[in-house]
Design a protein around this nucleic acid. Structure first.
Lengths: 200, 200, 200, 200
DNA sequence: TATGAATGAGTCTTCATTCAT
DNA sequence: AATGAATGAAGACTCATTCAT
């Protein structure tokens, strides 16, 4: 029943863990983060106990999944840093990247929001991303491209809110895009023509 | 079957209904909209059947709760319309009112979002509020105070997203306010000094 | 919402009762005998209490409904008696009439079966119909057209069983008809050509 | 969460499953197939979750129960095939076996009928049994012992109807037997002496 | 007499997590 | 290390019937 090339290759724990993550990733992509742990374990061909050995809490599994995406996110960060000279523009692009990361799975914004409020397995990932956001923001603020009264966490939560409202894939309408635009527009200082300088 | 010792003497239907709503309101305030129907019935001292007689679906209970708040919201609308001459400022104030309405209970944004996508007992309330938002927005757009490419629903969803991110009352931090400000700022056309004209 | 020409005309109890029966008949026709009493009361525009005043148990309502149909059934009986000279043929036609009566509403066979076993409000109607069946059967037996070892109740239950299996309206396939044919064939004494002497 | 004082030590999965089936069998025998899953779980001394682990749907439990009986049924089939030379007689005996299988529990015919119409966990069992019936029927038809216009499904439904009418064990009266006889008689071609060749 | 509010046990099912094997 | 059986508290909702008004 499904599963990768090797079904529980037993080689070593790491391989098994990776396999579980592969399966979990697909499961979350297909069904959202509310898939049951049992379903993931079953699809991965392992017992629930094994799943919990690797990821004691469901949060931990989610955190591991996010870590994977974090690598992708980090590459986008590097690209932006390398390519973008304009700080405000860099922040905008970062917000886009942020949104993609947050909408990786249906229902992901919810646990991310929780992780922002109380400590959870997802908190480190959030803090890391917030830190990067803070850096982009700071540059923009120094250039006068961003309001002084906001911090990285604000932008993170704003992007999260918009990701929540837009849904993951079902962003059928243009609302999601417009909200993202509003967010990017909103954090700025007075902008004469924010709406027309978009080329992306 | 059964017939406990004391059968609530029914007093008056409306009175009882109001009592249930009072209890539900407190329960939702304390525990969020995810409180169970059974818990509400128990706390109200009525059987589950009574609760369901008044509110056939949980949605209906929530809708009734919102209707209560809607009256408050409507008064704020009237105040704004009466007091505020500047269309853009009126819209801003309306967005604030919207946010308060949406954050009445922890977890409320979720069913509201659903009601925007598929029909639910909450949909009429959403449509009504969106309609009002549309009117405020239109005025602002006519005055050149708001972007032309957005509609009432966009603002509604934006406010909803921010309400979701901010949480109900437990906002604690300033993030919620800042996000609201960003939203208000974001939908505007180029604004020379949006950040400093706030007096509220 | 729906209801006959006069909504609770209040003229007198009998009229009200008849109105309820009209509504109940349509409700059972549309939704089967499992419609809730509340639904019937609501559609009839009366309180549940009024419904229960006329029909203390759901069974009683069903029994009243059957009584109505019984009149139709009785006319068929008279027709058969008047037109049919051949006792065996008369029994066959009676069995058909029986089946139509039993399939008046989806789910009706169930309470009828119960009424055959234990006393219920439907029992009198059953006994009456069984009595008639007995008479038709007896004639056929005297003519040598029916097995001697069966009684009216057997045929009644056989017809009931087939009505149950065939469903009320969803008799999409030919099974129902074939089963009825089998029943009619089965109770007979040796019949050289039962399958081909059907003209109906 | 919770962790009661005694957690069933799991002994052996199969053992436990068998135990649940034993309990379910007794429960269905005593109270019919409408016993609640909770009642079965309680009586078996396991949590509801355990019950549902073994049998995800109530249907599945019922199907498992039927599978047990199916083995018995299959042995009767073998016996008939081995002992009975006369195809018509073999079919008769098979119909008897069918009836016993269907009357294993009060209320069983209902889900079986459903399984004939729409797919359910019981459908495979039904199809299997219908297949066997078809084979017996075909032989009888080839010998001229059965009407040509019926198929296995018709006989299955006929037997089911009769099982429904007769009730499980509480048949008490002779009606059930007589109906079965009628069915066996009814599907036949002209039979000179069907009523007297019964020895069973 | 009519009303309709109130009852509340009962139904199936889910799932994160634990722990005996 | 791995397994997968066991847990059991919830949860939303139904409906025949009763009885205060």
């Amino acid at each position: 029943m499904s599963s990768g090339p090797l079904r529980r290759p037993r080689k070593d724990a790491q391989h098994n863990r990776a396999h579980i993550l592969d399966v979990a990733q697909r499961a979350c992509t297909d069904e959202g983060v509310d898939v049951s742990m049992d379903a993931i374990a079953k699809e991965a061909g392992v017992g629930a106990g094994t799943l919990y050995r690797h990821f004691p809490r469901k949060e931990d599994l989610l955190a591991a999944l996010l870590t994977r995406h974090h690598e992708t996110l980090d590459q986008r960060r590097k690209s932006i840093e390398a390519e973008e000279g304009h700080a405000g523009r860099a922040l905008e692009r970062w917000i886009d990247a942020l949104g993609d990361w947050m909408r990786a799975y249906e229902g992901l914004p919810e646990p991310l929001r929780t992780a922002c409020r109380v400590n959870s397995a997802l908190t480190p990932a959030c803090l890391d991303v917030i830190g990067t956001t803070e850096r982009f923001l700071r540059s923009a603020q120094e250039e006068g491209d961003a309001r002084q009264d906001i911090v990285g966490r604000d932008i993170f939560l704003g992007a999260l809110a918009i990701a929540w409202a837009g849904g993951s894939k079902a962003a059928g309408d243009r609302t999601g895009e417009k909200l993202r635009d509003v967010l990017k527009n909103g954090w700025g200082t007075s902008k004469p023509s924010r709406c027309d300088n978009r080329s992306d």
